[in-house]
């Protein structure tokens, strides 16, 4: 699962969805892999517009990335190809292959196996 994906996920439990604590979900025991994908600067710029930067910072610090800017790049910074390539690498090419995503509100854990997260809930949480 891509780092970008987590920016658009929250807990599947209905009562958590409106809680600020449920976003972003938190990685635990994450095993990372790198997957080469075609670099498309326009796509990265477009995703930057949509990204919740604070949530992205939380996610990347949990995964051990230390070089993410404190502020979301805007204006001229978006023409910096090195920066866009770095973000491409983090957002799209970094795959979480195994581990868990944990809700900060209800503490439910969602398993990630072979790169795919499973959000099916046990009956008592539906």
């Amino acid at each position: 699962m891509k780092v970008l994906t987590v920016n658009f996920l929250t807990c599947a439990v209905k009562t958590c969805k409106t809680s600020p604590e449920a976003f972003p979900l938190h990685f635990r025991d994450a095993e990372l892999a790198q997957q080469d994908l075609e670099f498309n600067p326009e796509f990265i710029k477009n995703m930057l517009l949509r990204l919740d930067w604070n949530a992205f910072r939380v996610t990347t610090s949990e995964l051990g990335f230390s070089t993410i800017p404190a502020e979301k790049p805007e204006g001229d910074a978006l023409n910096d190809e090195t920066l866009l390539r770095d973000l491409h690498k983090v957002l799209l090419e970094t795959q979480v292959m195994e581990g868990k995503l944990v809700c900060g509100h209800c503490a439910h854990e969602y398993a990630i196996k072979e790169g795919i997260a499973n959000f099916l809930l046990p009956n008592h949480l539906v």
Binding site: M1, F8, L9, T10, Y110, N118, F119
Partner: peptide, 17 residues
């Protein structure tokens, strides 16, 4: 690519409203 796929139930989707 460049999309994402996950396992979820359509009555309990894990996305922010």
């Amino acid at each position: 690519q460049p999309h994402a796929a996950l396992i979820a139930d359509n009555l309990s989707l894990p996305h922010p409203p």
